Simulated assay, not measured.
Amino acid sequence: MVLSLTTWNINSVRLRMPIVERFVGTYRPDILCLQEIKCQNHEFPLEAMQALGYPHIILHGQKGYHGVAIASKIPLTEDHRRDFCGVGDSRHISAIFERGGRRIRLHNFYVPAGGDEPDRTINPKFGHKLDFVEEMKALSAAAEPDTSAILVGDLNIAPLENDVWSHKQLLKIVSHTPVETEGLTEVIRRGGWVDLMRELVDPSQKLYTWWSYRAKDWDAADRGRRLDHIWSSPDLRPVLQRIDILREARGWDKPSDHVPVTAYFDL
């Protein structure tokens, strides 16, 4: 059987339910991980999501900001929400699901964007981002015995040179500064994670999941960044079939600036 899992920064789930419905109606992933839902748990469009075929939904919402959700056709257990940096933001949720005889811990993250100025002495948002990434370095893909792991989300960092439209021009731009890219690379290294998107697409090739609202013609300009990620424990790499980035969704009516990224596993 094939397991399909999508990660998508939806940038307000209530505002963008029409494109969620459009996406799910066509692609029907088994599990949908959303970031930046921008609503409290009781405001989440629960009935609408269940009507789309997702009876198992876990939430970590927040009024007007942040927020993550996992909607699944597969039962979810042992859900956990971690408050990174101890500031009360809703930026992480995880749960266990079982498929193909495997027990899998799924993490869904929304890492702080970090503001505009890459200097923590004058920009507390950037400091918060760096502290968040520092805490992530302790997150191991082998944290639980007999349990595989998948980590997805909007990590707000494009770590490799070809994860941005211009490496040289973005070296001093938040999301691609060396302190951020080195930090995220260390999260992967220390945690024993596998960057699945780059397992399938050579690092010499451009790869984007986000295009700014500021561009008049985002498609023609194509100044993208790979801010959305799918990682796993090494044991899941052999069963990975493919990963699809739905670029066309950036051009849908009232789109998010991020597009859905879907991994397919032979599970």
Rank of each mutant, 00 (worst) to 15 (best):
D222K: 15
D83I: 06
S166I: 10
D83R: 10
L130E: 12
E186G: 08
I104K: 05
G191R: 05
R247I: 08
S94L: 11
N123W: 14
Y264Q: 09
C39M: 04
E182S: 05
V13Y: 02
E117M: 08
S90W: 13
P178N: 00
A215G: 04
D266V: 11
Q40E: 15
I58C: 07
G224V: 02
L139F: 06
V13N: 05
F23L: 09
R189T: 07
I245C: 09
R28I: 09
V2C: 11
T209A: 07
R225D: 11
N162K: 11
K125S: 07
V133L: 13
E117W: 11
F126D: 05
K172Q: 13
E21A: 10
S232I: 05
I104C: 06
D116N: 14
M1T: 13
M136P: 01
A220H: 14
I173D: 14
N41T: 11
P159V: 08
C33V: 07
D244R: 15
S166Y: 10
E117H: 07
K125L: 06
A215D: 12
A215H: 13
V179I: 13
D228H: 06
A263N: 02
G127T: 05
A221I: 14
E21L: 03
T7G: 04
D257V: 06
R105L: 05
N108I: 06
I19M: 12
A141W: 00
I157F: 05
P178G: 00
E98F: 15
K216A: 15
I31F: 07
G251S: 10
Y65A: 12
H42D: 14
Y27G: 08
P178F: 02
R242F: 09
F44P: 02
F109S: 05
P29C: 01
N162F: 06
E78Y: 11
R214V: 10
F84T: 09
V68M: 11
G53M: 02
I93T: 08
F109N: 09
D244C: 14
I93S: 08
S166N: 13
R16I: 01
H229T: 05
L207E: 04
C39A: 07
F84K: 12
V261R: 02
W165Q: 08
R226N: 09
S233K: 07
S204E: 13
E117P: 00
P75A: 09
L171Y: 05
H42R: 10
I31M: 04
N123H: 13
F265L: 01
E134D: 14
W210V: 11
D116W: 14
P18S: 09
K38A: 12
H42L: 09
W193Y: 03
E182H: 09
R198K: 01
W211G: 11
L5A: 01
F84Y: 14
L227A: 06
L246R: 14
A95R: 07
D116A: 15
I57Y: 00
I57M: 00
P112H: 04
A141M: 00
M1P: 01
R105A: 06
D154P: 09
M136I: 03
N11T: 02
V68L: 08
H167L: 02
E161Q: 12
S256E: 03
